[in-house]
Design a protein around this nucleic acid. Structure first.
Lengths: 343, 343
DNA sequence: TTTTAGCACTCTCAAGGCGAGAGTGCTAAA
DNA sequence: TTTAGCACTCTCGCCTTGAGAGTGCTAAAA
């Protein structure tokens, strides 16, 4: 499909105008609004051609044109100019990150909040997660009676805590010794290696190690880390979600962790860090996202520790700006992660 | 305001019927639906009286009656029978908790999910939080160069992690020694006590301790722990939130952490563990909650470690059932917390 | 005194009709 | 190839209208 420059211009303008107004765009009003050096009839002819290409459609005979999903896809793929964010926006965002607490959780929360505010849509951020769980440190803390708290730190800074009930009370000294022993023995080991060390431990040590192994396996099997959401209410103010049932379906995907995970797994997980993926209208696969688009990116340290970020909004979304924002925030997070978390 | 038994009955039935249908309730249909042993005219007279008491209102002349907020309040305060949850529901819920991982985070997430599903509304759960931060254990883990990871465990199991940049690299051994020293020295101490121990430490130890103190102060100053939400999309399916702007306002309160915190602070924080608080229609104070009701409870170990749970739904909410559910889940969480977390 | 039957009245809601407005496609001229 | 002109189409808001549901009041019945 080869478009003339004029057709590209008109498509771009229609998309811009439609994003602004959420209304079908007519030939005459387009010419007036943008002072085009051609008549509405010419525009009409071009619109007709674009409609033949299935890039535009008419909601009804004799209404203006609206971009189709295909139209948006063409726009995103060929016409969107990678403008980058204005420098003062970049500065504001960077500033927020560097003045927040040095805490990965805060950063992720902040990333979600920034994405939501900048794009006025819903945002999601998953914590960085390693494909392979590598042990770093173990801590055992007696709490009361036979109860103890296990704190497991993985390479890359993932932390898991869990309560354990032992068959009999054990002193804090004994626990500390075991924890130190395991910590020394297993540093930088993966699950398999740790499993092979099991025989070296005494009975209590074996029990602890088993729990540790189970926990590490669990972490390794999960596809993403913790998920942070923000701006869910933003999408409710979009006119296409005025009847809240549409909104419900879309937001439900974010809320239901398993749905979201499989969505991420089948899309952005295959993307390289730095790359951007845009899902428009669910791409035919995701029924619940029929009315939505998602802009996704992957951040982190390729091959070791990565997470996803994304923005969910109406199909009628300012893609250029959203893509720039997502890309920028992904880069900021990548920097923070590689600076502080890397192995 | 003293109501006759018949007036109480009619109020109760109207509320039930309105909750079921979301429609104004008329005298004739009420008599038919519930096979009342009186005529519609009698019901009309009583309705008229209840309207004079401001417990009912007419959306328009000659529509049926709808309960006012005052009507719901009277209902919740006087008429709701504390039925308790059906035993098999209780069993299902308990079962879910005891078969989940022994992890406070999982429990809280599960609690939010159970509340959301049982009540088909939005739910919130805050992590148990101690009024006073009491030190339990510190761990320092070298990551790379001058970076290290500080893991702070408080009495009650609150865990905070933070990255720290030192002025120069320090070996893991040295870090472990310092961590052990601080852990021994400060167990069961509050911020003030720890501050007074500062002089005992060497320069590096002082730096660490300062960060530790800052962190503990921060935790102590925050009014709630981590917040878990679920079922936000449930409220979107209620007919009163069909125009999503109303829904937006209500859900915004949940999403904006600061709003939610001040809401909790001014309500449920003053409630005893085990008590239930019902906010109907924002009680005149919370503009954004005009269309909503919230059922709140406090769980945990009184005076030491408490959190809040709650359900947000439309004013037209099945209060009896919701209250039972919230109370039951609060009890389950209280048990779990006192069993595993208590000091 | 309380309850009920009957009736006139009110108000909403859905359906249908109508005109204004915006947009289109086509044709013929520039 | 572009444009002016024109007939045509479709939506949307507005109005009217009738059905339906509910009310309040009054007078009779219990």
């Amino acid at each position: 499909m080869q478009l003339t420059d004029r057709q590209k211009l008109i498509l771009t303008l229609i998309i811009h105008e439609h994003i602004r107004t959420a209304q079908p765009v007519g030939s005459k009003s387009l010419v007036e609004k943008y002072n085009l050096a051609m008549s509405s009839a010419t525009v009409r002819n071009e619109m007709s051609a674009l409609t033949d290409y299935a890039l535009l459609r008419q909601p009804h005979t004799s209404a203006g044109r609206v971009p189709t999903e295909e139209g948006y896809r063409f726009f995103v793929g060929n016409l969107v100019q990678k403008s980058g964010l204005p420098t003062n926006t970049r500065r504001t965002i960077t500033h927020q990150f560097y003045q927040s607490r040095q805490d990965i959780e805060q950063w992720l929360r902040l990333a979600a909040s920034v994405l939501a505010n900048q794009s006025q849509a819903a945002s999601l951020v998953t914590a960085p997660h390693a494909e392979k769980a590598i042990f770093k440190h173990l801590e055992l803390i007696a709490t009361r009676g036979r109860q103890l708290l296990m704190v497991l730190v993985l390479m890359g800074g993932e932390i898991r805590q869990q309560f354990i009930s032992l068959s009999e009370p054990v002193s804090q000294e004994r626990l500390s010794t075991i924890a130190a022993q395991i910590s020394n023995m297993c540093t930088r080991c993966d699950v398999e290696k740790i499993s092979r060390m099991r025989f070296q431990m005494d009975s209590l040590g074996k029990d602890i190690l088993d729990i540790l192994i189970a926990e590490m396996t669990l972490i390794q099997e999960s596809t993403t880390g913790e998920i942070y959401l923000d701006g869910m209410t933003n999408v409710l103010s979009e006119p296409e979600f005025a009847e809240s049932d549409e909104a419900r379906q879309a937001l439900h995907i974010l809320e239901e962790r398993s749905l979201l995970e499989s969505l991420l797994a089948s899309t952005v997980m295959n993307t390289d860090v730095g790359g951007i993926q845009v899902l428009i209208g669910g791409e035919g696969t995701w029924q619940e996202l029929r009315q939505c688009s998602i802009v996704l990116a992957r951040y982190g340290d390729p091959n070791t520790l990565t997470g996803s970020i994304g923005v969910l909004g109406p199909i009628r979304m300012p893609y250029d700006r959203t893509i720039s924002t997502v890309r920028f925030v992904a880069n900021v997070l990548s920097d923070l992660v590689t600076e502080t978390l890397a192995v």
